Simulated scan of single mutants.
Amino acid sequence: MSDPTTDTPRRSETKHRAILEAAARCVGRDGYAATSIEAVAAEAGVGKQTIYRWWPSKPALFVEVYSALVNRTLLSPDGAVAAAPPGRPVSDLLRRLFGLYRSTPAGSILAGLIGAAAEDAQTRAAVRDGLVLGRRSILLDRIREAAPAGADRSRMEHVNDLIVSMIWQRLIMAPEDLTDSFADELAQLVDTVGHAG
């Protein structure tokens, strides 16, 4: 029986990191749409076949780049971005996220992936599996932590989806408006929906 972990040659950790960093630099400089696998390969000093051996597509590569830039450690209360007042887990998480969007190309990558997903099934699958489903618990866990006692769990899942859609809309239409005050407004939805009967 085939072992999926050995079907692809083991990644060189140094090359792997170099490719992710090169991809982030390319998007930061040229934008998501204008960044090609060829450009990333040249920036990283590897052949494009190396990239395609490890990632089946540009969207798959950039889902991983996004996940590396916006990793769970940086979104934790001990992360590097200024926190909201104590006891505000949703606002704290969103403030950290928006700070990463301002200080890294993560926001540009996500906006590019969202735009490309509208027209490309491969990108849609990469975004769904790697970002929507793969990272859903990051925000949902904070929403459940902040929810009023006795709040309906299924409503909290709807709040999660509403907050994500509002962030994505603003990321595409007015990324400069992803501010701390917007993070606080979104966090208030948890109380509003949690108390709705």
Rank of each mutant, 00 (worst) to 15 (best):
V70G: 07
P59M: 12
A23H: 01
R96G: 02
L69E: 01
R155Q: 15
S103Q: 13
T50Q: 03
R95T: 11
H16N: 09
D180L: 05
S137F: 07
G197V: 02
G87A: 01
R72A: 12
L100V: 14
T5Y: 13
V70N: 08
G99A: 10
A22W: 00
G194P: 12
G28T: 00
V159Y: 09
R95H: 12
E13G: 03
E119L: 13
A151S: 13
A125Q: 10
W168E: 02
V132Y: 09
I114H: 07
Q122A: 14
D177W: 13
D129W: 02
S108Q: 14
A24G: 03
I19K: 06
A80F: 12
D7L: 14
P56L: 09
G197Y: 11
V190P: 04
S154D: 10
S181H: 15
D78C: 14
V46T: 08
L93D: 10
V164T: 03
T35P: 04
G112M: 02
N160D: 07
G28M: 11
A118T: 02
L100C: 11
R128N: 00
L178P: 15
H195E: 14
R142E: 10
A60N: 00
A174E: 03
G115Q: 04
A60I: 04
D180Q: 15
L186A: 10
A24L: 06
L162D: 15
D141Y: 15
R72W: 06
A82V: 14
H195L: 12
E13D: 09
A196K: 11
L61A: 08
P77R: 08
R102P: 08
T123R: 06
V190C: 00
S181G: 10
T35A: 04
R102H: 08
R135Y: 11
M156F: 09
S137V: 13
L178K: 11
L162Q: 10
A126S: 05
D184T: 08
L94I: 06
Y101S: 05
A146P: 08
A18Q: 07
A187L: 08
E119Q: 07
A44H: 02
P89A: 05
A106N: 04
R155N: 11
E145R: 03
G197N: 12
R11V: 06
A68I: 01
I51A: 00
G112C: 13
S2Y: 05
F182V: 13
D78R: 12
V70D: 11
A146E: 04
R135K: 04
V70R: 00
T73C: 10
D92S: 07
G45R: 11
A42H: 02
L186M: 13
V164D: 03
D78I: 15
R128Q: 02
V27T: 03
L171Y: 08
R153P: 13
N160W: 10
F62W: 00
L139I: 06
G47V: 02
F182P: 11
G115R: 13
